[in-house]
Write a protein that binds this DNA or RNA. Structure first.
Length: 574
DNA sequence: GCCGTTTTCGGCCCGACTGTTTTCAGTCG
């Protein structure tokens, strides 16, 4: 059975959990957690790397010891060390760590003093009032544990960015209307444009914290107040989204914004940098002794440690510090730089609007071009186009192009990639189009090898232009299909194809690290709405967010090209 | 357990809130 990076990361995370419960050296624990994260972020299959004689200790945070453990896990699927620790401490205890409010120390006490091993054990002990009797616990803690256990069954999921945006924007508007506040801004993963967010971090600057906090906890949508101090509070909204508030003085705005934007990994490194220069960085500013040396703006904070300002989407400790130091930070692509959209549907298949209506909406956005790419016949459910209906559509596009100067309608199709890697329409029909967007809509569960081969074969077709939603995932609803993404990316490079970042908030594939790899390989990325109605062009902002997280610049984005420079890229000669 | 332009040993980010405490540990972000 192949061992993927995520499998190795899971072993390291479990070791870290068990070590924590055993009160091991916290820095040793961190080493395992850092390694787990590094592996999850890595765009290269470690098992393959080892098979080719690569040296895993060259990866950041992987030394001799962890390197040999990686090899062991690749070969055996587990690590002897994990099995040993599972004997020392019941493995089920790691589930207790997932209860908010329970950390290693408390889990340890629950286990040693009360013999609690599982969530069920914990529930009955709490119900019987045995938890409150423990040193360091009390009635409130016990009650809290019971509530958390109950909440677990209803499961607090992460929020997709587009959903969180709706709640965030109205909450921010509400806070902005309070007296005495200056800045109100959403920081955290929201500002970094992550595809999903666990909670919403709001930062407010004001002279006095208390009135803001009071107004915050009184927001009509608040269902539960989780914490409530003078400068900081947390609430859970009726929609189950947790919102954290911090209030700082205006003079600390930049330092606080930097701090609460994260990521945690980015901030750890930034503070180390500050420390190396004899400075101390916290959410109130950058200090030399008691003297504040920066903090009113984010730029001032970065500048004081000798760095240019780093865009929030890059703050993941995935190379942004090295790039900043070398003066190589990318100039990230912006929404306004998109010149058109290369994936949109109409009433002819499963869209809700006519070509004319779609074109009008695109024109209003200032687009230079719009590709109409309805489904092909295989997708019967969506009334996919057969050659006859496709040709009728092409004639209509010719008429509309003649009649409406200013925006060029490109002739395209979203053609199904069939199970054997052939396309749902013959090459000669596809050859009449300006571009061919290929996508998988069936047989999601092929083996990794077969799925990859299938898509590679499709890319080999002479008119194939863009691979749409390359992983097929629906966030939280459908796992990506098993596919060797690095291989797809290299093949796209060799064949001159582009890959899509599908801007639909549920899709957003390519992922950020996939984008980065495409860029490194010189593969162009198309940020497409996959619009099924005139409203869906709004989603492009999320696609751009994902592309920015993937370090993409204007030059890496196919549809940031003018029509004139786009045309030759759509037609392949191979 | 990792790492090194000050280090091969001795560091490894920092502050707020809660609940339990009589001065602070644990957890969280």
């Amino acid at each position: 059975m192949p061992v993927h990076n995520a499998d190795i990361a899971a072993v390291f995370d479990e070791i870290a959990d068990l070590l924590e419960i055993e009160s091991a050296n916290p820095f040793r624990v961190r080493a395992y957690r850092n390694a787990a994260r590094a592996l999850r972020d890595l765009n290269q299959d470690v098992a393959a790397m080892i098979a080719q004689g690569g040296d895993v200790t060259e990866l950041p945070g992987i030394g001799e010891d962890l390197g040999s453990k990686i090899k062991e896990i690749v070969e055996t699927g587990t690590a002897a060390m994990l099995e040993e620790h599972r004997k020392k401490v019941p493995a089920t205890l790691t589930n207790l760590l997932k209860i908010p409010g329970l950390g290693p120390k408390r889990v340890q006490a629950l286990y040693h003093k009360l013999g609690i091993r599982t969530l069920d054990d914990l529930q009955s002990a709490a119900q019987n009032g045995r938890v409150r009797a423990l040193q360091g616990f009390g009635a409130k803690t016990e009650q809290h544990i019971l509530e958390q256990l109950k909440a677990r069954t209803s499961e607090a999921k992460r929020f997709k960015l587009a959903i969180a945006t709706q709640y965030a924007e109205s909450f921010i508007a509400y806070l902005k209307a309070s007296a005495g506040v200056e800045h109100v801004v959403a920081a955290g993963s929201y500002r970094r444009a992550k595809e999903t967010i666990g909670d919403l971090d709001l930062l407010v600057t004001a002279r006095s914290g208390s009135p803001v906090v009071e107004r915050f906890v009184s927001y009509p949508e608040v269902e539960e107040v989780l914490a409530h101090g003078t400068t900081k509070a947390s609430v859970r909204l009726a929609c189950r989204l947790q919102v954290d508030l911090r209030v700082v003085p205006e003079a600390s705005y930049g330092a606080a914004l930097q701090y609460f934007t994260g990521s945690k990994e980015h901030n750890v490194l930034l503070r180390q940098l500050a420390q190396q220069q004899g400075l101390k960085l916290n959410e109130y500013g950058l200090f030399k002794g008691d003297q504040s040396v920066a903090g009113t703006t984010e730029e001032s904070v970065y500048a004081a440690v000798g760095l240019p300002w780093i865009p929030p989407e890059l703050r993941e400790n995935r190379g942004e510090f090295e790039a900043a130091r070398a003066g190589h930070l990318p100039k990230l692509v912006e929404l306004a730089e998109l010149k058109g959209d290369l994936h949109a549907h109409t009433k002819a298949t499963d869209g809700r609007n006519t070509i004319k209506e779609m074109v009008e909406a695109a024109r209003k956005r200032g687009f230079e071009y719009l590709a109409i790419t309805d489904h092909s016949r295989r997708l019967a459910m969506a009334h996919g186009l057969d050659p006859k209906r496709l040709f009728e559509q092409l004639e209509e596009i010719d008429r509309l192009n003649d009649a409406s100067p200013g925006l060029t309608i490109l002739k395209g199709i979203e053609v199904d990639i069939l199970e054997d890697g052939s396309l749902d329409l013959p090459d000669e029909d596809l050859g009449r189009l300006d571009l061919v967007v290929g996508a998988v809509h069936s047989h999601f569960r092929l083996s990794r090898e077969k799925q990859t081969e299938r898509i590679l074969r499709a890319m080999d077709r002479p008119h194939f232009t863009i691979l749409a939603h390359p992983s097929g995932r629906l966030i939280d609803e459908r796992e990506p299909y098993e596919v060797d993404m690095p291989r797809l990316i290299r093949h796209a490079r060799d064949r001159g194809c582009a890959l899509e970042v599908n801007a639909h908030p549920l899709r957003l594939d390519l992922t950020d690290t996939d984008c980065q790899m495409a860029k490194d390989e010189g593969v162009l990325v198309s940020i497409n709405s996959d619009a099924h109605s005139v409203l869906d062009f709004e989603n492009l902002r999320y696609g751009v967010g994902q592309a920015r997280r993937g370090w993409l610049e204007m030059s890496n984005v196919l549809n940031a090209r003018s029509l004139q420079s786009l045309r030759p890229l759509l037609k392949r000669t191979m």
